[in-house]
Design a protein around this nucleic acid. Structure first.
Lengths: 304, 304
DNA sequence: AAACTGTTTTTTCACGATAAAAGACATTAA
DNA sequence: TTAATGTCTTTTATCGTGAAAAAACAGTTT
């Protein structure tokens, strides 16, 4: 199935689903350009969405008048898996392979094989690998194959070394921001969300991962340095998959991390550089520890 | 011309030219696999090279016997421009456009237009832009165009901030390396080359750029951190083009830099961390200054 | 048997083509 | 006369294809 297909319409399907959820809130939809910005798609896509909504009897559409006729039913939505980007699909498959054992460091990566296995064109795989290479886990041999460098202890140490350098600097920059900077309001909001999560940690502990990323990204942005901000993508990627495969004591770990974040937030609000440094160091140390213990101590643990 | 061509044989042509230069030194060529490793290409390419050399009467080739019949003439070589990688061609065109004024920050980058202008396929341009994006000069809008962030003062400051962080750390790591490490011999060799160049600075000042890169790469490698080592690619790229467009007082600048490098090398050899830090800081400061003064102070000089 | 040459298969690189999505232009309603 | 809708054009995303290059396999020579 699906061979010869040029481009999937996942942008349309995803926006359609999101638009359906908006239907609950209003009795009539805004103008096409407005909907476009709301959904983050072009007007062309908005019109496709409206067309279908009209066809399925969800709305009546005549020029500017777009009245909601009925509430969306579950079967109005497109299946979740059809809303994924090709890049996401490839990344998931690739990471599954990488983490599902048998991914020895030094192993060759075959574009053609990967493409066939995932069922996509080679071009998309190539582009994915090029983008992915900045994470430092794979490397290209000129005119030849890619080599897997492996998710090793060395990798984790190199990653955290940079992370610590960048985050300490960003935290210091954050604390030095003027009181009228909007980041302080963002920080207050994050603090509140941490407290809420701390209260319900027993059941909602798996929501921490997302909060964690937002918190650290806010801090990194204070560096006003694109290389520091961009580097957080590497960390986020690693932690994203790390959270998925290392479920051991997840609740306790997250509870501890929330406590450290709150102390870290307090330190930032105090604007005392010494306190910030201490709180930041403490959290980063335990983050590193968590990451390191989750790495399968394989046979070859290079790096002197 | 050349439309519809699938893949240029630049690997073959480049290896052929390099092989021609080897002909001067020997009366007979080594085995095919050995030639392959020597030239960094596959045996398939080696055999194509040998075939042509036989045809043009450069060698007699019968199985293992490959005897050189005559010296290569200038017209035996393939033209230099035919030996470039597509990636190199695209990078050059792109950078020329970028530096040749009229490249306002915020400007859109059109893949199709770029491809047409350079005379290559869109895929190659896309892949180039993806690879190039790690330099922080361009950024992709989801499902849409690329945006030029511009070679601004802010960019230079962000770049040098990271560079200084990384190099100070690498230099400290370098100085702490054991005396039996091979890097000390590398450093001695570089020192000697610096002295030679210092002597002939009046005429050979333009050779400094390449020496500069080798010196700093050696230091960065001492960090044993792939992210630090890889980041030097960003610096190298910027400085590479910087050297091409900023010829003002090039000789003086390079003479000064050589002096700073020699002091830096002395400090490293002393293994005194304080001295290393001082020498490194001094050189980085003047490198930053050089870069900053070369940036056209455009209208919008953001960053608080 | 080890290392080479000869031959065949596989993979990478780059292209043109096509559907999805974005964007530009023309027209119309408020 | 502004901001929407209707229509048309351009660009991006993705594929299949074919030549260049690599890699694997098989047969020879030393």
């Amino acid at each position: 199935m699906g061979q010869g297909m040029s481009k999937s319409n996942n942008v349309y399907k995803d926006a359609y689903n999101r638009c359906l959820r908006m239907l609950d809130e209003t009795r009539s939809l805004p103008s096409e350009p407005e909907l476009g910005t709301l959904l983050g798609v072009s007007r062309t896509t908005v019109r496709s969405i409206l067309s279908r909504m009209e066809e399925t009897g969800l709305i009546a559409w005549n020029k500017r008048a777009k009245t909601v006729l009925r509430d969306p039913r579950p079967d109005d939505f497109f299946p979740e898996e059809e809303t994924d980007t090709l890049a996401e699909i490839i990344e998931r498959s690739f990471m599954r392979r990488l983490l599902a054992g048998g991914a020895e460091a030094g192993m060759q990566i075959n574009e053609l094989e990967l493409a066939r296995e995932i069922g996509v064109g080679t071009t998309s795989v190539r582009e994915f690998l090029i983008r992915f290479s900045r994470f430092g886990l794979i490397e290209k041999r000129r005119n030849s194959h890619w080599v897997l460098k492996g998710f090793t202890r060395a990798f984790a140490l190199e990653l955290t070394e940079i992370r610590e350098m960048f985050e300490l600097r960003s935290a210091a920059a954050f604390a030095a921001l003027p009181p009228d900077s909007p980041v302080w309001a963002d920080l207050d909001r994050l603090e509140e969300q941490h407290r809420v999560l701390q209260r319900d940690i027993a059941t909602r502990f798996n929501e921490f991962s997302e909060l964690d990323e937002r918190f650290h990204r806010l801090i990194h942005r204070a560096s006003l340095n694109r290389f520091i901000v961009d580097f957080y993508d590497v960390i986020a990627m690693i932690f994203h998959y790390h959270y998925q495969w290392n479920k051991a004591q997840e609740r306790e770990r997250n509870a501890v991390a929330i406590g450290e974040h709150l102390a870290y937030i307090e330190a930032l609000k105090s604007r005392d550089l010494g306190k910030v440094d201490t709180a930041c160091r403490k959290h980063l140390k335990s983050a590193r520890q968590t990451l390191l213990t989750s790495i399968p101590e394989s046979r070859s643990s290079q790096k002197s």
